[in-house]
């Protein structure tokens, strides 16, 4: 088996006294696409955000390419917070794509893509622009660089957000319901870009309700329920019969029956 790009070990996460993640173990193999499914409130976003260090775990460890993210274990079973520089370094291996795109409205598409290249990586403006243009072209938006987010459709905005993440050449891309706030006819263009990335060997973790995408692109399906990882395996095994009753229930409740029988 190849080395894990992301290794999650016994992660717990509480908000106040509500435990949202109740001991998650998960390995994301390099070059694979992992799809996270689960009912609303099951903790999918929280788990993904922990992997991006947007949330801090309450206990447990997360490793990115073998490097600890955020905390290091000390000998006595406790943990200490790593220095901000170390966190930034490990985190720079990760790209994140949000449900709400979160493009910066005062910058053009190209500005959004090149911002970190210039301010974080210290690249020359010209060089960064060339690289940004290339990334935009990769997501099919080579001609939209000078548009502001408000001048782009939802699908285009999400593709700019993907280009923004790609520009930093991350090893791992995290997606939190990237198509959930898009009109149905615009989801295809975003899913196609993601499909291409998967084909190109990018390591991806995708929270999605697009069961068809998960079944066809996912190398691995993970089903979360009430903060616990209930199922973890290849799509054929997870979706094939016999189906776990909770998954069956999820497919029937959260999607129409048609989709549940399709996959």
């Amino acid at each position: 088996m190849t080395r894990s790009a992301v290794l999650v070990r016994d992660v717990h996460k509480s908000f106040g006294d509500v435990e949202v993640l109740k001991g998650i173990d998960l390995a994301v193999p390099q070059g694979s696409t992992t799809c996270l499914l689960g009912p609303s409130g099951s903790g999918k976003s929280t788990l993904l955000r922990c992997m991006a260090f947007l949330e801090e775990t309450t206990s447990g460890t997360i490793e990115i390419n073998g490097q600890p993210l955020g905390f290091a274990e000390t000998g006595d079973g406790r943990r200490t917070r790593l220095p901000a520089g170390d966190i930034r370094k490990v985190r720079s291996r990760i790209g994140m794509v949000f449900q709400q795109f979160n493009l910066w409205p005062h910058m053009t598409a190209l500005g959004n893509v090149t911002e970190a290249l210039v301010t974080v990586r210290g690249m020359k403006r010209k060089e960064a622009n060339a690289k940004g243009e290339a990334q935009l072209a990769r997501v099919g938006l080579g001609d939209r660089g000078h548009h502001y987010p408000s001048e782009l459709s939802g699908g285009q905005q999400q593709r700019v957000a993907i280009a923004r993440a790609l520009a930093l050449e991350p090893d791992i891309l995290l997606f939190d319901e990237p198509t959930s706030s898009l009109d149905p006819e615009l989801t295809g263009e975003v899913l196609n870009v993601m499909r291409e990335l998967a084909g190109g060997g990018m390591t991806m973790v995708v929270v999605t309700h697009e069961i068809g995408f998960a079944a066809s692109v996912g190398d691995k399906i993970v089903f979360l329920d009430q903060g616990k990882l209930l199922l973890d395996g290849p799509p054929s095994e997870i979706f094939g019969a016999p189906r776990h009753p909770r998954l069956q229930q999820f497919l029937e409740t959260y999607l129409d029956r048609g989709a549940a029988t399709l996959v």
Partner: peptide, 13 residues
Amino acid sequence: PVGHVEAAECVGL
């Protein structure tokens, strides 16, 4: 929006 700040954190600003 908080997300705009999170997006910036994610790219390392």
